[in-house]
């Protein structure tokens, strides 16, 4: 190939296979969208009075019924307990499964796969559905909510913990193994210091998410502020609903501020 030929070559950003797969992605996306839009069942009659209904809703919510503040706050404390204890339980269960799922700590293919399967199952069943299952087991109340939050969080915390373990630097681990450290010591002194910041940030992040999630568990009877919300809604006291929503909003915003400030200090 002469220099001139080389210079006149056509430059392309992507290989043909890549272009083809990009095209396939767009095609699938558009096809899925069109198919969904054409077949979804929507009752247009309901839409005509939507603006009226919205105005009606806002009018019923204002002014909020502040006498409902006391039960709301009690339920809010319960929600915080559910979220925190649920996160603690989740971490207790997720750490061993995360260790089992990290291919460098547990070099065993079937065990890694089993851990991945547990993570996917835990994450794909929604917190509200977990709550339904645990209400059937423990009966209505915060205990069911705590277990729902714990089981739902295993997937998220465990998966991220396993990924953090897999990214750990081999140097210090090899040094410990060379010094004759047993496997538990290698884990506690080699892996743990490396993944500790990641671990705490995962735990905090999940706690923040769990506060949001535990606020709705009460809708299926699993305790917390959702029960207050459900009671007010079933009685059509929308002014009380407004108080509950406001309380949830403030707590969620506060939790996010706390998590962000603690994370910047930790990392």
């Amino acid at each position: 190939m002469t220099v001139v030929e080389q210079l006149n070559r056509d430059w392309q950003r992507f290989t043909p296979l890549r272009r083809l797969s990009r095209f396939a992605f767009y095609l699938c996306a558009v096809a899925a969208l069109v198919a969904s839009l054409r077949t979804i069942e929507i009752i247009p009659e309901f839409l005509y009075d939507a603006p009226e209904q919205m105005v009606d809703l806002v009018q019923r919510m204002v002014p909020p019924d502040w006498s409902y503040l006391k039960p709301t706050l009690d339920a809010l404390v319960e929600t915080l307990h559910i979220a925190t204890v649920g996160t603690v339980f989740a971490i207790f269960m997720a750490v061993p499964i995360g260790i089992m799922g990290a291919s460098n700590v547990t070099p065993n293919g079937p065990l890694n796969l089993l851990a991945k399967f547990i993570f996917v199952t835990s994450r794909s069943v929604n917190s509200l559905i977990w709550a339904l299952l645990f209400v059937a087991v423990f009966g209505p109340g915060p205990l069911a909510g705590t277990f729902a939050i714990a089981f739902r969080s295993i997937g998220f915390t465990g998966k991220l913990f396993a990924e953090a373990l897999e990214e750990a630097d081999k140097g210090s681990i090899e040094a410990l193994t060379a010094a004759g450290a047993s496997r538990p010591s290698t884990f506690i002194m080699g892996y743990w210091p490396q993944v500790r910041p990641a671990f705490w940030s995962i735990a905090l992040f999940r706690w923040d998410i769990n506060i949001r999630e535990s606020a709705v568990l009460g809708l299926v009877g699993a305790g917390g502020i959702g029960v207050a919300l459900d009671t007010a809604m079933s009685l059509l006291y929308w002014d009380q609903v407004a108080v509950v929503l406001l309380a949830i909003f403030i707590v969620v915003v506060l939790a996010e501020i706390i998590v962000t400030s603690v994370r910047t200090k930790l990392i």
Partner: peptide
Amino acid sequence: SFHPIIVAIIFVKAIGFGALAGV
């Protein structure tokens, strides 16, 4: 800040039961 379920409840009230509220 609001969980999708809470938003869904409000939309169910505004536009009625059905897939549209979920969307």
